[in-house]
């Protein structure tokens, strides 16, 4: 299926072949990520960030500008004053009238899908609720593909909040198209939710779960880290206890393969020790920098089609 004019709501609407098209386009876009390619000079992209997310918004904005297009929109608290109590449906109708595509970030689950049902222009989900963040998952996959040239047969550890972090859900869905071994690492309280477990089972994914990163670190090709938030713990003492145990430190990384690749969707708070930044395994800043060419590729495919 072609990417042209398609909504990007969840990774499961796409498949391995779509990802391959996206990756080769992104690889091409890396050449232009710091210059300009006049592909979308006649296009306007609306950024509807009902919930703030500086990184995701800036990378979409940069991607559109690098492609010669223009950007309109709002972010965070601006959303409330701009929409003046208007409902989501009406705001989307307005943006749909102005723009060629709409990027939406919203705190409610299913908001992007709903927006896509209303808008005629393609809608791109930049994160809704705690379930979906497809462009982050595509970026994660792309980074892995860039590092290893393949995704099949890798052993991938996902460490942190597996229950509430939206990137985890989307990443695991995206990985379901590949033959990978998953090691899920989290405190008991933050184990993946039933929906995700059932999904992995239904796709016959190979996975296990542990609460001890030290037990699996030497088996990993990729360690994907997500933050554990204090608010998730009813008991602050419990949080303090697990916080240390899940912190990624040089001591943990030294026990892994030298070829290990550490990823993180960023922003990071203190779940990765700053001392790890200088280790060759740290690849999260590279991952973040690939966000622009990946989103350039996505915008190009959705707004201009597969032909270059």
């Amino acid at each position: 299926m072609t990417w042209f004019n398609r909504d990007v709501i969840g990774v499961l609407d796409f498949g391995r072949e779509d990802f391959e098209v996206l990756f080769s386009e992104a690889l091409n876009m890396e050449k232009y990520a710091k210059s300009r390619l006049d592909l979308l000079g006649d296009k306007v992209l609306a950024l509807a960030f009902f919930e703030p997310s500086t990184r995701t918004r800036l990378s979409f904005e940069t991607a559109m500008l690098r492609l010669g297009g223009r950007v309109i929109g709002f972010s965070g608290t601006e959303a409330t004053s701009m929409t003046k109590g208007e409902n989501l449906a009406d705001t989307i109708r307005m943006l749909d009238a102005y723009a060629n595509a709409i990027v939406i970030r919203h705190s409610l689950e299913g908001a992007a899908k709903f927006a896509a049902e209303i808008a005629e222009s393609p809608v791109i989900n930049a994160g809704d609720g705690s379930q979906n963040h497809p462009t982050q998952a595509m970026l994660d996959l792309y980074t892995i593909w860039r590092e290893f040239k393949v995704i099949d047969d890798l052993s991938i550890g996902i460490l942190g909040d597996l229950r509430y972090a939206r990137v985890v859900n989307s990443l695991i869905q995206a990985l379901s198209y590949y033959r990978v071994k998953l090691h899920l690492i989290s405190p008991e309280l933050l184990r993946p939710r039933q929906e995700l477990v059932e999904f992995m089972n239904s796709r016959n994914m190979k996975y296990d779960w542990t609460d001890d990163p030290y037990g699996v670190i030497n088996d990993l090709d990729v360690l994907y880290v997500v933050r554990i938030q204090r608010e998730r713990f009813p008991d602050p003492m419990e949080y303090e206890k697990v916080k240390g145990a899940y912190k990624v430190t040089p001591k943990l990384i030294e026990r892994g393969k030298p070829s290990l690749v550490i990823l993180h969707p960023l922003p990071r708070v203190d779940e990765i020790d700053f001392a790890v930044d200088n280790m060759p395994q740290a690849r999260y800043f590279k991952q973040a920098s690939l966000g622009v060419p990946l989103r350039m590729a996505l915008l190009k495919l959705v707004l201009a089609g597969d032909k270059s």
Partner: peptide, 12 residues
């Protein structure tokens, strides 16, 4: 409760 379908003011 966080699902878009539970929002009173949206036509969904």
């Amino acid at each position: 409760p966080r699902c878009i379908t539970n929002q009173q003011r949206e036509p969904v």
